[in-house]
């Protein structure tokens, strides 16, 4: 069956790529092809900063830049985790579910206004662990039940959301632990601690991607899963580890979000998946996998945050932000997909 359809696929490939890549492909070639593509996100970021500064010089004030860094902290941490998943050519839609579970765990275990728990930083560890476990389950479901990751994680998204809303009893619970709140309130070298945590998460992700075997294997799977398997890599184990790693980052992000808001509630995760996917894709990591990385994502997060910040400075309705992000996803994916490798788009 597979052998028979193979020539068929390649025929349709040639026909389609000539037809379909016409417009976006032409634009990309016009602007210098691959090399331009690689530098495009950085160029977009720089141009964006310059334009916003011209329109409103308040943008480059130190106070605004600190605010910018602060609002980038959670998306950056989330996007670090998501980058590894997208590098494999998969997707993790459970971002919001996992984040809300971690936020729920930290709020309920640390000092709060709902129960008598006061486990301090053990609560933070528990929250990160719960995020990791959620990721681990996503990975196990995807590989053991052999279902596509977007379905497995769609299920996990709502499992996480349901669990956290249930545990919170449908209400908002305040976080009263002063030392955890300090993540958002205390400053070191002018930046809130949450920003330093996010920078730490970025450094960790960079080390994992560029200097560990796991990072290399994730890239290899995204590049070509069959070849990776044939070279003796235990693909299943790498996939599970990658999802657990993503859950780990989502767990940290959940703690940061709870610390920043000073509470946890049912909608703490709303819109975070969207922002994270936008950041990863706009940064230039290909959805097909194997191309891009955490440095791209850093730039992507900055583009998304600068744009959001700029829109507020320019007095554009914040409600339209999601619309702009959606259009950015479409534009970025359309310009960056390596269509020659795509057989069938589903």
């Amino acid at each position: 069956m597979t052998i028979q359809t193979e020539p068929l696929k390649s025929v349709s490939d040639i026909e389609r790529t000539t037809l379909m890549t016409f417009l976006p492909g032409r634009i990309a070639t016009m602007l210098g092809g691959r090399r331009w593509r690689r530098l495009a996100p950085l160029a977009v970021l720089v141009v964006l900063c310059i334009l916003i500064t011209i329109a409103n010089p308040n943008f480059i004030e130190l106070r605004n830049l600190v605010r910018l860094a602060n609002s980038a902290a959670v998306p950056l941490t989330l996007a670090m985790g998501l980058t590894f998943i997208i590098l494999m050519g998969s997707i993790d839609l459970s971002v919001e579910g996992t984040l809300s579970v971690a936020a729920m765990v930290v709020v309920l275990l640390a000092a709060n206004d709902s129960n008598g728990n006061d486990y301090g930083w053990w609560a933070v560890l528990a929250a990160i662990a719960s995020g990791t476990i959620m990721g681990l389950i996503s990975g196990l479901v995807q590989t053991m039940l052999r279902i596509p990751s977007f379905m497995a994680t769609l299920g996990m998204w709502f499992i996480g959301l349901g669990l956290s809303v249930y545990m919170l009893g449908g209400s908002a619970i305040r976080l009263n632990d002063a030392s955890i709140r300090d993540l958002a309130l205390h400053r070191f070298l002018g930046l809130p601690l949450a920003v330093w945590v996010a920078i730490g998460a970025f450094a960790l992700a960079a080390v994992i991607q560029y200097y560990t075997r796991l990072g290399r294997h994730i890239l290899a799977i995204g590049g070509d899963e069959d070849v990776t398997k044939l070279s003796g890599v235990n693909v299943t184990r790498v996939r599970i580890a990658a999802f657990a790693l993503a859950g780990f980052f989502f767990g940290i992000a959940g703690v940061l979000a709870a610390a920043q808001l000073g509470q946890s509630h049912a909608v703490i995760g709303d819109g975070r998946l969207f922002a994270a996917v936008t950041a990863v894709v706009v940064g230039g990591t290909a959805l097909t996998g194997g191309e891009g990385g955490v440095v791209n994502t850093l730039i992507g997060v900055l583009i998304v945050t600068v744009l959001a910040n700029g829109m507020i400075l320019l007095g554009i309705s914040p409600y339209i932000q999601q619309t702009v992000q959606g259009l950015m996803i479409i534009a970025a994916v359309a310009l960056s997909l390596d269509r020659v490798r795509l057989k069938i788009v589903k």
């Binding site: 409600y319 619309t323 959606g326 996803i329 359309a334 269509r339 788009v345 589903k346």
Partner: peptide, 24 residues
């Protein structure tokens, strides 16, 4: 179809566009 974006990302993106419009 025309930009060859996988449907779950294409519809996630248009969903965002639509939500933004509805909020606006």
């Amino acid at each position: 179809v025309k930009l060859r974006v996988p449907s779950f990302v294409a519809t996630l993106a248009t969903g965002g566009v639509v939500t933004g419009l509805a909020l606006w």
